[in-house]
Computed example of a mutant assay.
Amino acid sequence: MTTTTAAAALVLEDGRIFRGTAYGAVGQTLGEAVFCTAMTGYQETLTDPSYHRQIVVATAPQIGNTGWNDEDDESQQIWVAGYAVRDPARRHSNWRATGSLPEQLEQQSVVGIAGIDTRAVVRHLRSRGSMKAGIFSGAALAEPAELLARVTGQPSMIGADLAGEVSTDEIYTVEPEGEPRFTVVAVDLGIKSNTPRMFAQRGMRVHVVPSSTSLDKIVELKPDGTFLSNGPGDPATADTAVALTQGLLDKGLPLFGICFGNQILGRALGRGTYKMKFGHRGINIPVVEHETGRVSITAQNHGFALEGERGEQFDTPFGKAEVSHVCANDGTVEGVRLVDGRAFSVQYHPEAAAGPHDAAYLFDRFAGLMKGA
């Protein structure tokens, strides 16, 4: 079943219920309700491992127009826990499409809901904050009190250690385009497919390794630089990744991090993290680089952030560090770096797919760092 008139309900932790129809698989799903303001790129959003255990509410009113294709996935599967949309396309139309969005949701057992007032949901989440939620349809529907009990009984995103659940099980290699220039070891905390491609386009051979990989194993691969990927969950739980990062810094290896990797580098440098009220999820978020004043329009997906203020410098066991980037909208930390330049990270996605390419230069910056080293 790809289209249905079966009743469905989106139930929020505070008791608010939005009723619509089933979309994709029929049944029950639980997760954290968040919203994404991107007007395009629903396939990339759904397959981004950073959305693991989250029910994504699409703010774009119509979803599914271009169907589903075999080229734009950011991983091997859909990772969102559930999907909530207002007006699903009745028919998809795109020359690259190999099927429809609801077909794909059903095939991968992703429970969704359609026909709800997503504007009202987003206004509610902006005022109350992201919260536990569930989507229920078919036999999973029950009395409101029972549905609410299921929602509130699930684990919180605070304290959730999820990177290991989305990481690769084995090391794999993405070969460079053209003549090899550098070797990069990328620690997979929930890496998106486009990231190794961006490295490969710049002549970098990328060994993608599981999140549990030891420092000794990484050193055996003889990298010119190391990379910490995006990923889901609470960075305060990622002690293993933090210890690994500190070991990499001790070795003096050039290091670059994105999104969750920014939080891990920040923690390795002694900074704390906190849960944001409703996070940043979209593809038009302005970020200011402190040193140059340069503003980039960026793609983002994070519900946690580092503590700090624009331009703040602080001492670490690895030398002086600073907050290098902040969000122009609300001042959230969007990047940190060692002042000597050998390690840096950003909270946003310079590999953006879908999204703007303003920040793609950071991959060239990393290449320059390895060349200098």
Rank of each mutant, 00 (worst) to 15 (best):
Met370Gly: 04
Phe35Cys: 08
Gly282Cys: 02
Ser156Met: 07
Thr173Ile: 15
Ile113Gln: 03
Tyr42Val: 12
Glu291Arg: 15
Leu253Met: 08
Met370His: 06
Leu10Gly: 06
Tyr348Gly: 05
Phe199Cys: 12
Gln154Cys: 05
Asp169Phe: 03
Ile78Lys: 00
Leu125Ser: 08
Arg310Glu: 15
Gly203Lys: 04
Ile55Ser: 12
Gly15Ala: 03
Val56His: 08
Gly293Ala: 08
Ala84Arg: 09
Phe278Ser: 12
Val295Trp: 00
Thr5Val: 14
Arg294Asp: 05
Arg202Leu: 02
Ile297Lys: 05
Val151Cys: 10
Thr292Val: 06
Trp79Arg: 01
Arg365Asn: 14
Met131Val: 02
Asp48Met: 01
Glu309Trp: 00
Asp216Asn: 11
Glu103Pro: 01
Leu147Val: 01
Arg16Trp: 09
Asp70Asn: 14
Ser93Met: 13
Thr59Met: 12
Ala9His: 08
Arg128Gly: 06
Glu220Val: 02
Ser156Gly: 07
Lys251Glu: 14
Asp364Met: 01
Ala373Asn: 13
Gln300Lys: 09
Lys275Thr: 15
Thr152Leu: 10
Thr332Asn: 13
Phe314Asn: 06
Ala360Arg: 05
Val174Gln: 06
Val333Ser: 09
Ser93His: 14
Pro286Val: 06
Arg310Ile: 10
Pro180Thr: 02
Thr47His: 03
Gly311Gln: 14
Gly331Pro: 08
Phe136His: 03
Gly331Phe: 06
Ser211Gln: 12
Ala58Tyr: 14
Gly261Pro: 15
Lys277Val: 11
Asp169Glu: 12
Thr47Arg: 01
Glu175Ser: 12
Pro88Ile: 09
Ala22Gln: 08
Ser109Gln: 15
Ser167Lys: 05
Arg267Asp: 15
Ala328Gly: 04
Gly112Asn: 03
Asp340Leu: 03
Gln76Tyr: 09
Glu13Ile: 01
Ile264Gly: 11
Ala200Ile: 01
Thr152Tyr: 00
Glu103Ser: 10
Asp48Leu: 02
Gly41Glu: 00
Arg128Leu: 04
Leu30Cys: 14
Ile191Met: 13
His52Leu: 13
Trp68Leu: 00
Phe260Ser: 13
Val187His: 07
Leu369Pro: 00
Val187Glu: 11
Arg53Trp: 08
Thr2Trp: 08
Asp224Gly: 12
Phe199Gln: 08
Met204Ala: 14
